[in-house]
Nucleic acid binder design. Structure first.
Lengths: 211, 211
DNA sequence: GTCTCTCTGTGATGCAAGTCACCGTTCAGC
DNA sequence: GCTGAACGGTGACTTGCATCACAGAGAGAC
């Protein structure tokens, strides 16, 4: 499926108009379903991937298949790894899963190359993408290096609330997975936060009570 | 101080010859001493930085000034953060310290920009730099997420041995700092490894006994 | 030689968090 | 309605690591 220029402009503001035209012509849009795996560890990456709709979760995997959540990708963002990997058909080092239904834009590697020399806005987009992902990684490192679980949980919930509203439809298990912890630990910490009046716990949902 | 083309070719193989000429003309070489701080957190980055000699250590810092070691930069590598940050005069998010005496190459931001459009090899160098640093970060995350201290210590020592030879002139304190642990823990683990015959402990040095 | 500083070894203790075990509640599907 | 699965709560235990405290062993300065 092709994209139209208007959509592209909204998703990726600030690029040259000819670039939008080219993108509309050469990029393809692919719908994804919640739970779909977009990228496996070790899989060869053939094209650059941008997010149009939905939320993508990136994980790191160890030998035993443990998934360690590293960050989200949201509309308007790009999978940075796919920039360089696609250019050389290198292998993915992360696991990408769709959290919600959505759609991703694929750009053929030769276009990626061509635009890089042709459009300054494109190379700036690529670099700033990299920088943003880099920063996300650094924040992930900060979290595990400097913070305790309760701080991380609070930070996590606040971010979710900012994105989805005060009532979060999420299970303790899922939170535990995202924070690379275990369900029991999260349950206990949530209880503690409830007794402090920060939130109210319901089945399958958490209600945030603070500003 | 200026650089000569031969030197540059050795350090950064595979670039276009005209690019080497330009680099020789526009880049400046700056000597650094062991312990020098090259980049502070929050400091504005004005130019792109490449490593010519010596080893640079990158740290992440928390509010209390705790340093968390993330990775090394060695000759031929580039400080990826400086690529994009210099373009926009953004602030550094990491702390860079010289571990040994050495020298770094500075490239003015306007050249960085110009070369990006002009030389394909340059933009590939920049992107693969990013990718490599990205990979280092992922490895750092792996280490803290999936490994215990003794595995990390063994991995660390092996890498040091590969780089500096079988006798490492290093104190337990320094190792602890690099692994973001404490001296006592490292001492204990080293003792355990010594009793397994993996290594021999001396004052201010560690002798690796295995292949 | 003595003094002092750094480096190293080691026990005791504390704590965050992962794991195990088990149970009650809720809810969808039959 | 019953049943099985998913969800949530909680106690008991283990573990990996940090911290504290202290002691002995080089090694350089004088």
């Amino acid at each position: 499926m092709d994209m139209d220029v208007l959509q592209l402009k909204q998703l990726f503001p600030g690029l040259e108009s000819e670039l939008y035209e080219e993108m509309a012509a050469d990029a393809t849009l692919r719908p994804v379903k919640a739970g779909d795996i977009l990228l496996r560890v070790g899989q060869t990456i053939r094209s650059t991937m941008l997010i149009a709709e939905g939320v993508i979760k990136l994980y790191r995997e160890d030998e035993d298949g443990n998934e360690f959540f590293i960050y989200h990708l949201t509309p308007g963002q790009a999978c940075s790894l796919s920039f360089i990997c696609s250019a050389r058909s290198e292998k993915s080092e992360v696991l990408a899963k769709a959290l919600t239904d959505g759609s991703v834009i694929s750009i053929p590697p030769e276009k990626m190359d061509e635009w890089m020399g042709k459009y300054k806005s494109w190379y700036q987009f690529v670099l700033s993408s990299y920088r943003n992902r880099f920063e996300s990684l650094l924040q992930t490192i900060d979290a595990i290096a400097f913070s305790t679980m309760d701080e991380r949980l609070e930070f996590y919930l606040k971010r979710q609330v900012a994105q989805f509203g005060k009532v979060l439809n999420i299970t303790h298990q899922e939170i535990a997975h995202d924070l690379n912890s275990s369900r029991e630990v999260i349950s206990r910490l949530l209880k503690k936060m409830e007794s402090k009046g920060l939130l109210a716990l319901h089945r399958n949902s958490i209600e945030w009570l603070q500003a």
